[in-house]
Amino acid sequence: MTVNVPSRMWPALRTQGQRVSMAWDRLGDQAAFYALTAASVGTVLRRYRAELVRIVAQMSLGTGVLALVGGTVAIIGFLTLSAGALIAVQGYHSLSNIGIEALTGFVSAYLNVRLIAPLIAGVGLAATIGAGATAQLGAMRINEEIDALEVIGIHSVAYLASSRLIAGIIVVVPLYSIAVLMSFFAARFGTTAVYGQSRGVYDHYFDTFLNPMDLVWSSLTVVVMAFVIMLVHTYYGFTATGGPAGVGEAVGRAVRASLVTSVVVVLGLTLAIYGQSPDINLSG
């Protein structure tokens, strides 16, 4: 059976086809850039170790005004501190409605490690380290500094993108350790000092339901998330166009994409790790 398409619909169909083709080409370019960035990690470790150390210091403690408040360490710490305080507030009130407010320690040990702390850390990484990397690389692109590096024989992808990829993974481990500790402290302080629950009761349920392997899996989740976030942000910064306005647009697109991918990574890894064993594991 032959389907007759009105002639007035051909321009619209052609436009949609061009959009699909451009989106497919853009996806291929991203995949190629991600593969090249990951493959150039060895080049960074062999040739650009000094630049890697400088980027690690910049990402962790920050520069300029940001260094005065402790850089990314302070930002992620305060974010997770707020999340832990919300667990104390919402967890205690919700559980007290059914008379089991003593289990607030269980909520902190269970939700902080498996879901809340990784997500909050991902948001902090995307908004600080990731956005900063995109802005830096975008400014270098529009000022033709990346082209200048390639002219003098420097592997621009390794020097700029792969180095930031490695630095992000290195920095995220101590950052996440601080984030988890801050969330635990805030939940415990809010529950015991503000709402007056016995410290012994809180610590009993917290220690009982805190599985040490959950901390290992949670750290692995954040490392994978940092890997994905840095790939996304370096791509958008490396391909920024259109002057200063284009750099701002690239930062916005990168943050949006990295936040979405962070949630997808946490969801996928959580289902892979805990999906086959939904039961609550006791540590003691």
Rank of each mutant, 00 (worst) to 15 (best):
V3C: 07
N4K: 14
P11A: 07
T15W: 08
Q16F: 10
G17I: 05
Q18L: 13
S21A: 15
D25E: 15
R26S: 14
A31T: 10
A31L: 14
A32E: 07
F33D: 02
A39R: 11
A39M: 02
G42A: 05
G42I: 09
T43H: 06
Y48P: 03
V53N: 06
V53S: 08
I55E: 02
V56I: 13
A57F: 12
G64M: 08
G64V: 10
G70V: 04
I76C: 09
G77E: 05
A85L: 13
A85Y: 10
Y92K: 14
Y92G: 05
H93Y: 07
S94T: 15
S94C: 00
L95Y: 01
R114F: 06
L115A: 03
I116Y: 05
I116K: 06
L119H: 05
L119I: 15
A121E: 07
G122M: 00
I129L: 11
G132A: 07
A135Q: 05
I142T: 09
D147W: 00
V151D: 07
G153P: 12
S156F: 06
V171I: 07
V173I: 13
V173W: 00
L175K: 07
S177K: 01
M182L: 03
A186Y: 09
A186W: 05
G190V: 09
R199G: 15
Y205V: 08
F206M: 08
L210M: 11
D214W: 09
W217D: 15
S218K: 10
A226Y: 00
A226F: 06
M230D: 05
V232A: 05
T234Q: 01
Y235H: 09
T239M: 06
A240F: 11
G242F: 01
P244I: 13
A245P: 00
G248I: 08
A250P: 07
G252A: 02
R253T: 02
A254V: 00
R256I: 04
S258N: 10
V266Q: 11
V266Y: 00
V266F: 02
G268L: 13
T270I: 01
T270D: 11
A272Q: 09
Y274F: 10
